[in-house]
C-alpha cells in the first residue's frame, strides 16, 4: 500500500518533497495553504487577479521560531499510545511565507535556533500511515 498525504494537494511526496503553493498570475503573490484558487481571487487587496498557477514552494528555509508539545493535544490530533512529545517549527521560506510544521522525527527544540536552515521532509503521521510534511534541521553551514 502506498502512503497517502494526510491532506490532499498541500504537498508532494517522493525524494524531493515540496509544499504546493498557489501563485497569483497578476501580482505574483504566493499563497500557502493552496486555497486561493478555490476562493477565486487574490487576497492582496491591491490586486484584481483571479488566475493562479500551482507552484512548488522552496524546500529550504530559515527557522522563524520553534517549540515542542509536551502535553497531549486534544482531538482531532491523533496521539500514539503512549503519547510522545514532538517538536514544532515555523519556517520562513524565500517566498516570504512562514509555514508551520512538526519537526522531523528525532529532532526537538535543542536542535533548533531562530535563523538556522531547515529542509522539508515527508514522514508518516504519529498514528496511521498517512504522510505529513515536517521540518528537518540542516547541518550548520548548509545553504538555504
Amino acid at each position: 500500500m502506498t502512503a497517502t498525504p494526510a491532506i490532499e494537494g498541500w504537498f508532494t511526496t517522493g525524494d524531493q518533497p515540496a509544499l504546493i503553493g498557489e501563485r497569483c498570475t497578476t501580482c505574483a503573490t504566493s499563497y500557502f495553504p493552496p486555497t486561493a484558487a478555490a476562493a477565486g481571487f487574490c487576497r492582496n487587496p491591491r490586486c484584481e487577479g483571479t488566475e493562479f498557477e500551482q507552484v512548488e514552494l522552496s524546500r529550504r528555509g530559515t527557522v522563524w521560531s520553534y517549540t515542542d508539545t509536551r502535553y497531549q493535544p486534544p482531538p482531532p490530533y491523533s496521539a500514539p499510545e503512549p503519547f510522545a512529545p514532538f517538536g514544532l517549527a515555523a519556517v520562513e521560506l524565500p517566498e516570504g511565507i512562514v509555514v508551520l510544521g512538526q519537526v522531523a522525527a528525532g529532532y526537538g527544540p535543542d536542535d533548533l535556533r531562530v535563523g538556522m536552515h531547515v529542509e522539508l521532509v515527508v514522514e508518516p503521521e504519529h498514528t496511521g500511515e498517512a504522510l505529513i510534511w515536517r521540518w528537518k534541521p540542516l547541518a550548520e553551514g548548509s545553504a538555504a
Binding site: 521560531s65 508539545t69 502535553y71 493535544p73 486534544p74 514544532l88 531562530v114
Partner: peptide
C-alpha cells in the same frame, strides 16, 4: 492546526517566547 500538526494555543505562545530568547 490540531488535526495536521497538534498545534495548541500554548505552542503558538511558546514560539513568540522563543523568539524573544533567541
Amino acid at each position: 492546526r490540531f488535526r495536521l500538526l497538534g498545534m495548541t494555543n500554548p505552542a503558538y505562545f511558546a514560539m513568540y517566547a522563543r523568539r524573544r530568547m533567541d
